[in-house]
Computed example of a mutant assay.
Amino acid sequence: MKFKTSLATAVATASLVLSGGAAAMTIGITQNNVGVDSYQTTYDKAFTEAARANPNIDAVVLDAGGDVARQIAQVEDLIQQGVDAIIIWPTNGEAVVPAVRKAKRAGIPVIVTNSNISKAGFDFISAFSGPDNVTQGKRSAEIMCDKFKSMGIASTAKVVHITGQPGYTTATERAEGFENRLPEVCPQVTVIDTQPGDWNREKSQQVMEAFLVKYDNIDGVYAGDDNMGVGALNAAKAAGRDGIIFVGATNFAVGYEAMAAGEYWGSIYQSPVDDAKAALQTAVDVLNGKDVPFLNYFDTPKITQDNMSNYTKPVF
């Protein structure tokens, strides 16, 4: 294992080169923001380990640190290096499209991982590997509706919605799935407010604090991931507001623990290890000429207090 500096980036960015001997293929990955949450940290570790374990892969592992300009520069650097394939976890689904188009024109297949790029870029990628985020949002709406029905409040419940980072495809798709599905299954439930939590627990806690001051009656909270959902839960606990149903997505360890404590109702089970391995395998399959689905989804089932014993506690 050795380190080198990616000189074409706008700022100094370390790239980890994992060499498995005489590599048959060189695969570069530029990730969104490894340090922002435990999901992305675990994904990074799993990807690195999977690449290292394959003697036919030479992997160039990069992190954009949430900076779209840096990520664009990283894609351009990988093109200049002449890698065989590029995997991108987009910092912004629209802004990276021109860089992805450059890779396509250079004859380098691009696999998008975890969060898709905008549809304007679909012609320039070989496949998307990751969760179906719209379906996740729909399933979260179903979890919440079912709980309201069991409580007898499906005709009166009021919900607040904490979304992920604006402009980020995962946030947009989960919000779309939730907002479209909830009125289908619980037409009398009202979403009274929506604000971004930017995938950040502390910011989401502040958003929830403002909701609690503004609204005397909140029956449910939907958060785009459990990290934000637990931030909202912490705000409610501090304010002494009991009886609120919390539903998230991407079941983090903190969400699982809150479910076990009876404080957090449900989420969507998603493994960053599966996510990382699926992205790498998709790139390998594309390079080997295999028939790969354009939207290569892995399943993300519902998890609630009722069935959580069927799932192991997340490692992230």
Rank of each mutant, 00 (worst) to 15 (best):
G152Q: 06
A154F: 15
D216W: 11
R70S: 15
I153F: 05
Y297H: 09
F3A: 14
T156L: 08
C186S: 10
N33V: 07
D44S: 15
K119G: 13
K102H: 03
P55S: 13
K214P: 12
T194K: 08
A95N: 02
R52D: 14
V17A: 10
F124S: 13
D274G: 13
D132E: 01
L18I: 08
W89M: 14
A64M: 02
P90I: 04
A50D: 09
K119N: 13
P131Q: 12
P55I: 12
A278P: 15
F47E: 07
A235H: 00
E184T: 10
V96H: 04
M259R: 04
F122M: 08
V112I: 04
Q305P: 00
L212H: 06
V185Q: 05
R201H: 13
T312N: 09
N234P: 05
Y43M: 01
I86Q: 00
T190D: 10
H161I: 07
G164P: 07
L212F: 06
T42M: 12
F316T: 04
R241P: 12
D285W: 03
V11A: 13
Y215N: 11
T282I: 09
Q205F: 10
S6I: 15
D193V: 10
E209T: 11
G289Y: 03
S129L: 04
T41N: 13
S309F: 07
W265H: 01
C186N: 11
G21S: 05
D219N: 09
S118L: 10
T135V: 15
L233Q: 07
P166A: 03
A10R: 15
D58F: 15
V160A: 05
M259P: 03
Q206D: 12
R241Y: 14
A95Q: 01
G240C: 00
W265E: 02
V60H: 14
V189S: 05
R52E: 15
Y269S: 03
Q81T: 09
I125M: 04
A279T: 08
N180K: 14
V83G: 00
G248V: 06
N296E: 03
K203F: 08
F294A: 03
A64F: 03
H161F: 03
